[in-house]
Structures are given as C-alpha cells and as structure tokens.
C-alpha cells in the first residue's frame, strides 16, 4: 500500500495537492496524455490568476506581518463521477492549475488513485528530494571549516 492510502484521507489529499503544486507543466501534460480514460469534467471556478498576500513573522517567529504578494493560479473542477478537485500553485500558469485540479479530483477515486500516485506524485516527490539534496550539498561545500591558529608559546 502506498503512503497516501495509509494516512488519513485529509493528509493524503494534502500531500497530493502539495506535490501537484510543484509539478511542472510538461509533467502534468504528459500524465494527462498518458491517461487512458480522460474523464469529462466541468469547471466550477477558474482557471484564474490572482494574488495571495505572503506573511512573515516579526523577528522570524513573532507576530505576523504582510511581506508582499505572490501570483497564484487556481482552478476547481468537477469530474464525471462527481468528485471535486482543486488546483492551487504559485505563478500564472492557469492550464497547470487546471490539470492539477483534475488530478486532485482523480486521486479521490480508487480507480485512478494508483495512476496519479505513480505517474505524478511519486515522481515529483523523488525529483523534489533530489533537488533539495543537490542544493543542500552545493551549499554544504561552501561551509567554513575554521582552523585554530595557536599563537605564542606556553
């Protein structure tokens, strides 16, 4: 059993949506094309681009303050079996938000969940982990190793 099915429906869905927000447009398009039975669907909202005000915390951990906005695109779809999917992601790519919403809807059906997991979620998770590791190792190479210089005689 995969991770998403073991966890509660809510955390499983959150994990899926979190990962879909990181999917690239080509990844989403490819998975959509690879789907045998692309379901009929209607848009309930969007796809549309808007703003989300990003908050920081005073001193890093204190009271919230408004740092500045970011562009966000989102979409909500209803697929043939009635499931409703939401897609939210940074940036202005509305098609990617629409595809993410479709996969969020599909991931709610037992029939399509394994496909979404295999074709998208697992891959994005792997790529993300690799990217993070690469960045971490690049940064670690710039870590300062201090040498203690002994001065004078004892």
């Amino acid at each position: 059993m995969n991770q998403a099915l073991q966890s509660s429906p809510e955390t499983g869905r959150k994990r899926g949506m979190d990962l879909l927000s990181r999917a690239t447009r080509p990844e989403l398009e490819a998975a959509w094309q690879a789907l045998d039975d692309r379901p009929a669907h209607e848009m309930l909202r969007g796809p549309e681009t808007g703003l989300v005000m990003v908050r920081g915390r005073i001193g890093g951990g204190g009271a919230p303050f408004n740092l500045g906005e970011t562009t966000v695109s989102r979409a909500t779809v209803r697929v043939a079996d009635g499931a409703i999917g939401h897609g939210y992601r940074l940036g202005t790519d509305r098609r990617a938000a629409e595809l993410a919403a479709l996969f969020d809807a599909l991931a709610q059906s037992e029939q399509h969940q394994p496909f979404v997991e295999e074709a998208l979620l697992a891959r994005i998770e792997k790529r993300q982990a690799e990217d993070a590791m690469q960045r971490e190792n690049e940064t670690a190479a710039t870590k300062v190793d201090f040498f203690t210089m002994v001065r004078g005689e004892d």
């Binding site: 309930l44 909202r45 909500t76 209803r78 009635g82 409703i84």
Partner: peptide, 9 residues
C-alpha cells in the same frame, strides 16, 4: 449538499 457551495456561481 457539499456541492451546493461550489456550483451556481
């Protein structure tokens, strides 16, 4: 019922 919040816009 849940859908009612989403449709009709």
């Amino acid at each position: 019922n849940r859908n009612e919040g989403f449709t009709g816009g």
